[in-house]
Structures are given as structure tokens and as C-alpha cells.
Design a protein around this nucleic acid. Structure first.
Lengths: 230, 230
DNA sequence: GAGGCTAGTGACAGCCACTGACAGTTGACA
DNA sequence: TGTCAACTGTCAGTGGCTGTCACTAGCCTC
């Protein structure tokens, strides 16, 4: 079986059948590993914490760690996966008439508005936010993050294409909007993490400001003296 | 010393002082390793070829491989680095009046026009092109490729900002254009490599077509029935 | 052109991420 | 309560990568 699978199957209608002891224990172990991993990663760096360190902190064997997480990297991005899934759901739920770029913007605002508490149930939100700085400054993690981001983009491009009744492989526009949107997000992520203020609010504001700059940036004429931002 | 360093220091004015025996031998070893690596990677896959395999193919020790390349990954991207450096140079050399996006487009066309022969001196061009499909289909390599791409983007953003007399950290536009440009390139790279035709020409045409779609993709209205492309 | 210097190399030992195999333990359920 | 299956620990092994050390072979000086 796959302990690291989806937290909850999508179509659960009943109030939650109270998992058995075994299930709860597993969950506790996984959460403990997750939390220990993130704490060690942010405290002493990703490369400098070994999987053995994490396992030891939770008092399980290294082998057990790898039964919960396919890799050290997977543990690092476990929480981020939650947020991404929310975002995709939000895009799917957007009203059909809305222009694509606007739908993406709104989905982002929406999912960021509600993701905090979901994360908090797993690990302290502040820890998760600080961990982004570790991602951004660790080559191996940054690489993994970018790869995951492109996978996410492909998924979203398909959603957008479906909304608009287009074929992703025949019409370039879905992939292009999503790619542009993603590119701006990554630029803001980097700048945001480079500054000290690792809060969701700061990231949200910065992203909004940068998205507003896409059109001005693409026009040939930059002489219009647009006001630079803080 | 660093055998994998720049092929030729920029400011070489003399006709080339004929390197000693030692230097030539080193160069030959490095090129042999490079070629063997790329051949093995494309033949049986990146993950399935060990560094020992590569070293054995050239009849040196594994330790020696790591004296030429800091990592297996570095060997994989050695040739790509050449192409990137050319591109950056091309951007720097663009006439100052040109709009940023246009400068990037032209630089791309220019560098792709001349990079072929430079690569051919190191490894067969066709091998290099086929290797892109390996990159695209190997998670570890794709991740590394994306990270390298963002580093390149940062460098180019600074060049663009300087051209326009702006401060990269105060004005978002340089980073945004470059990010958008890079995003489109990556989308086309992926589509191009997914199709069979691994030629520079095919990539160039596809990129041009996709760049033309940026503006249409960003406008809210997609009803204009733009012609999808082949 | 003999001898010393040192860059380049091979051999070896060791770290860390990760995997397969096997056996012991413990919830779940009849 | 006993059986089964899930979960876990232990152990051995692979591959990427690094440090160390001794040795060989270009290079340079006298």
C-alpha cells in the first residue's frame, strides 16, 4: 500500500468513518516524520540533514521513512502538494465565461485564502513558509520545485483548454497563458523569498503587482515611466 | 585546476599559443568522456548508465571522471552551456534601441544560426539534439535543466535591465519579459522534443510560432478564431 | 640530459540516498 | 483467541560522490 497517498479520496460523502488504530498510528508517524524533516531542513539545511537524522528524530528506522516517502525530496514537497491540489481545484471551479488569465488570478487568491488552516493541521504554517527560503537557496530543491511546477502547468493548461473548448495540442494559447502565469509566479516567489518577510500576504501582494506588469513589460515601449514597486 | 572551465579565455589576442602535450591530452580525455557520456545516455538512458560505465568506455578510473566533471549532471549539460553562453553574448550585442522582446527573439535566431559548428567540434550535432529528448524524459535531468534555465534568465534580465537603464530590483519589467520569453521557450522545447523531429530548424520554427501567440493568449477574448498551428 | 617539481591519475575507503529480501511484531477481524 | 495481513526493523547491496595517498609522467631548471 501507499502511506503517502492522497489524504482523502475526493468523493467522500460520509462524515468520516473514524479510521482504525492502525490508520491513526500510521498518520501520526507520517506527520511526525514530516514535521521533523521540515524542522531539520530549515534549521540546518536540506543537504546537511540526512534521512537517518530524520528517522532518528522520530525514532523509527531509515527503512520506515522510505515506506512513507519515496524520497527525501518527496517529504520536502509533501505540504506543497496540498496547496497545488487546492489551486487546481479552484481553477476547475471558476465560472466558464471568465477570461483565462483572470480565472488563474482568482483561483490563486482563493486557494491562498483558505490553504493556511489546511497546512496548519499538518505542520506549523510559519515553518512551511520559512521552508520556501530553503527551497529557493538549495539547488537540488529548487530544481525539483521547478520540475513540479511545470508538471502542474501542464495539468492546468489542460483544464484551461477544456474550459475554452480547445485542443491543447492544436492551439498554443492554453499552454502559453499558463506558462506566462507560472513564470510570473516563480519570479515573485524568488524575490519574495529573498526578502525576509516570509508571509502569505506579502507573497500575494507581490504576485498581484507583478501580474499587473506583464502587459507593460511585453509592449516594446518602456518609456512610459511606469512606477516601479516597493 | 578546473579542466571543465571556459574553453578559451575571452580576451585571447594571440593566434593560440599551442598548448603543451599535457594540455592536449587532458582535452582529449575530457572530450572522450563527454562523447562517451552522451552516447551512453542517449543509447540506454541517463539513469541506466553509471559513471563507471562512462569511465570504462574511455578506459579511465571513475575518480578521473569526477576530476573533469563535478557531477554526472555537469557532463550532461556541458554542451548546452556553450549554447547558452552564445545566447547571452548575442543579447549583449543587440542594438540598444531595439524593444526587449524583439532583442531576445533576434538573439535566439542569431545564436542558433551559428552554434551548430561550435558544437560539432565537441560532439556530433545530431547526438546533442537527440540528447534533448533524454533530458525532457528524465525527471532528474529535466529538473536540472529548468534550474539552469532560471539562472540563465536572471543573467539575461540583468543585461536587459542594463540596456534599458533600469534597476532589476526596482522595476519588475526586465524579469517579467525574460520570464515570459523563457516560459515560451520551455513550452516549445517540450513539444518539440515530444515530436520526433529533433532538428534545430523544427525547434526554431515552433518557437517563432509560439512567441507570436503570446499576445493573443493574454487577451481575455479567445473567440477570435485564431488559426491553430501544425 | 639529469634531476626535481607538480599536475594528473588510479586505487581504496567511506558517506549518503535508496532498494530488495527476510523475519519479527502488532492491529484487524473472524 | 487465533489467524492473517499490514507494518516495521535489520541487513546487505548499488550508485553518486569525496577525501586521501602513493605513483607516474610531462615540464622546467641547471
Amino acid at each position: 500500500m501507499r502511506p503517502a497517498g492522497a489524504v482523502n479520496p475526493a468523493g467522500a460523502t460520509h462524515p468520516a468513518p473514524r479510521p482504525g488504530l492502525r490508520e491513526r498510528k500510521k498518520r501520526r508517524t507520517r506527520d511526525a516524520l514530516l514535521r521533523a524533516a521540515l524542522e531539520l531542513f530549515t534549521a540546518r539545511g536540506y543537504e546537511r540533514t540526512t534521512v537517518d537524522d530524520i528517522a532518528e528524530a522520530v525514532d523509527v528506522s531509515q527503512r520506515t521513512f522510505f515506506r512513507y516517502f519515496a524520497s527525501k525530496e518527496e517529504a520536502a514537497f509533501f505540504v506543497a502538494r496540498l496547496a497545488e491540489a487546492r489551486f487546481v481545484d479552484a481553477v476547475r471551479a471558476r465560472p466558464p465565461g471568465e477570461p483565462p488569465l483572470e480565472a488563474l488570478r482568482q483561483s490563486l487568491a482563493e486557494s491562498w485564502g483558505s490553504i493556511g488552516e489546511a497546512i496548519e493541521q499538518l505542520v506549523p504554517l510559519e515553518l512551511h513558509m520559512r521552508f520556501y527560503q530553503v527551497i529557493e537557496t538549495t539547488p537540488a530543491l529548487l530544481a525539483a520545485h521547478l520540475r513540479r511546477a511545470t508538471e502542474l502547468e501542464e495539468e492546468i493548461a489542460r483544464v484551461i483548454a477544456e474550459r475554452e473548448g480547445l485542443d491543447v495540442d492544436a492551439d498554443p494559447r492554453p499552454r502559453v497563458v499558463v506558462a506566462v502565469f507560472g513564470a510570473v509566479m516563480r519570479v515573485t516567489e524568488r524575490i519574495w523569498s529573498a526578502r525576509g518577510e516570509a508571509t502569505l500576504g506579502a507573497l500575494r501582494d507581490l504576485t498581484a503587482a507583478y501580474l499587473d506588469q506583464v502587459e507593460p513589460a511585453l509592449t516594446g515601449d518602456w518609456r512610459g515611466d511606469r512606477p516601479p514597486l516597493a
